[in-house]
Design a protein around this nucleic acid. Sequence first.
DNA 1: CAATCGTTTCAATCTTTTCTGAAACAATGC
DNA 2: GCATTGTTTCAGAAAAGATTGAAACGATTG
Lengths: 199, 199
Amino acid sequence: MPEVPSNPAPSPALSAAQDRFVSVWGQMAGAWGISRTMAEVHALLFIVGEPMCTDDVMDRLQISRGNASMSLRALVEWGIVSRTHVRGDRKEYFKSEQDVWAMFRAIVRERMKREVDPLLASLHEIRDMTARDSKRGRDDAALAAHHKRIDGLLEFFSSVERLSQGFVSPAGRGLRVAATLLSKLHEATASRMGERGER
Amino acid sequence: MPEVPSNPAPSPALSAAQDRFVSVWGQMAGAWGISRTMAEVHALLFIVGEPMCTDDVMDRLQISRGNASMSLRALVEWGIVSRTHVRGDRKEYFKSEQDVWAMFRAIVRERMKREVDPLLASLHEIRDMTARDSKRGRDDAALAAHHKRIDGLLEFFSSVERLSQGFVSPAGRGLRVAATLLSKLHEATASRMGERGER
DNA sequence: CAATCGTTTCAATCTTTTCTGAAACAATGC
DNA sequence: GCATTGTTTCAGAAAAGATTGAAACGATTG
């Protein structure tokens, strides 16, 4: 009898479906500014469901140790993969968060922190760069219009921030509730429009 | 007297603020899977507010004609920049949508079409890849769990799709209303939690 | 209708990002 | 404490992606 694998060999069809999923998820990555490999590693851990060690990931995705290690670390930092151990094994294992909503809450939280917060800070700075001019009477039309544009962005991203806090916070009911709510809002809007004969 | 420029020279501070904005907006691009230049062109058109022709853009951003042309075309395809003409000039001019909410509605609409729709299609295909196996009694635990995961994703992205339709549709009140609504929801949730003494 | 002005395209080049692999670095057990 | 097993780091290699520039194309005008 060969050694017992920790992950029993999946049926061929299942294995193929997993591969396909990994590939599809990897494709998406580019469009969202994430490295393809990192997305693939995540996809693999998610779709397999079981904890996997670095070597498992390397073998299945045909990537180098260094790459696997860095991708796994990054995923842990994003909070969508966690380290585990399996009884009687010294290796570190990794498993993906399995709740899709929790997963995206983590992603949104992290992206807000990394991208929107700094953006808001920059926008405030940019606003200040011309604040002085406008106080000194040099408040010509161009300057006023500029401020209005920056303010528009600030307003928008502040709303996004608030919105995301609603999603992310705290026990995670947020997003789900919100989605339901909004889809109802949408229906309502649609029917109101129907009454008024709008397209 | 030198020739009258179509865009009157902005004050140095304004010009600097514009440059800074272009640069900040360009930085963001990478994180969202958009080329830096395309984001910069968009930033420039947005922050200047006035229509600009290809040469204006080339000069201000120091990019090649080809690059400017392709970026502008892409922005037009995204629906956030439109072509215009100025009286007595044969050149084509481009101007950015100025309403921030309308801008992001266009972006969301486009990204849904380009990314979420195909993803949903792929997920359905992936689900089908193993449907046969499970009908033939080979419905072991692994297969069932796999289906559950795919279904979780399908549910999630369908919600996102519905949600985005609420945002995008129709006269644009959508997103604004939604944001307000959600921020209220958030307050409500927070205060309810306060009563119960949750963190 | 040909000259001029403007736009688009795309192969070649350049830049940036990602990936590899081997060496340095833990941690554990004997 | 040292040997073994496992993990991280990082300089250089490879791949992916963006940019250029010049030629082809199109449209307007005299």
